[in-house]
Simulated scan of single mutants.
Amino acid sequence: MIIIDKAVWQIDGGVPEELVVNHFKTVFLWLEKHDMLSDEGKEELEDGIDDCASLNEELVTKAGIEFLEACYDDYLKVVAKDKYGTDYNGSKLEKIYAQYKANKK
């Protein structure tokens, strides 16, 4: 199984739980908006994102896992420059996605 990120990894790394949960909520909502969540991912979002959240291939579509594998580390670098867990509207993720799509053409 491909695992992109787990909330517990960030929490164990010293990021406050509230910011980690905010980050994962943002990513899941953004993925949902772009039709990149699988049925399991939609269920996870509906049940509520918490400190047990995981971004993995079972929760996203094929397009979702391809995007996350290609760009998630870049996204983490961008949000780390500001404050992790505060990209509430996913605008930074949206910019990375626009670049990703442009590069795929």
Rank of each mutant, 00 (worst) to 15 (best):
55 L>Y: 12
9 W>M: 11
99 Q>H: 04
35 D>M: 11
20 V>D: 08
25 K>G: 01
36 M>D: 13
61 T>D: 12
33 K>M: 06
15 V>G: 04
20 V>T: 05
20 V>R: 08
54 S>E: 15
50 D>I: 00
98 A>V: 10
42 K>P: 00
5 D>A: 15
87 D>H: 02
15 V>C: 09
47 D>V: 10
51 D>A: 15
29 L>R: 12
78 V>I: 05
28 F>V: 01
32 E>Y: 11
85 G>H: 06
73 D>R: 14
8 V>C: 11
66 E>R: 09
18 E>Y: 11
98 A>H: 00
28 F>Y: 14
72 Y>H: 09
28 F>R: 04
46 E>P: 03
1 M>F: 03
40 E>C: 12
70 A>E: 14
34 H>N: 15
85 G>I: 01
59 L>N: 12
69 E>Q: 15
96 I>H: 04
67 F>M: 13
69 E>W: 00
85 G>D: 04
37 L>W: 01
48 G>Y: 04
49 I>Y: 07
69 E>G: 13
1 M>E: 05
76 L>N: 11
87 D>C: 04
56 N>C: 15
39 D>H: 10
27 V>E: 06
38 S>N: 07
3 I>M: 06
44 E>C: 05
82 D>V: 01
99 Q>M: 06
69 E>M: 15
101 K>N: 00
4 I>W: 02
44 E>I: 01
95 K>I: 00
85 G>N: 07
76 L>W: 09
65 I>Y: 01
101 K>T: 03
88 Y>S: 11
28 F>S: 05
96 I>G: 02
10 Q>G: 03
11 I>F: 04
93 L>G: 01
82 D>S: 14
66 E>L: 14
37 L>P: 01
11 I>P: 03
8 V>L: 12
102 A>E: 07
41 G>C: 02
31 L>W: 07
86 T>S: 07
3 I>A: 05
63 A>L: 13
103 N>Q: 03
71 C>H: 09
54 S>R: 12
42 K>Q: 09
30 W>L: 07
63 A>F: 09
16 P>M: 09
51 D>E: 15
82 D>R: 10
75 Y>C: 08
10 Q>S: 12
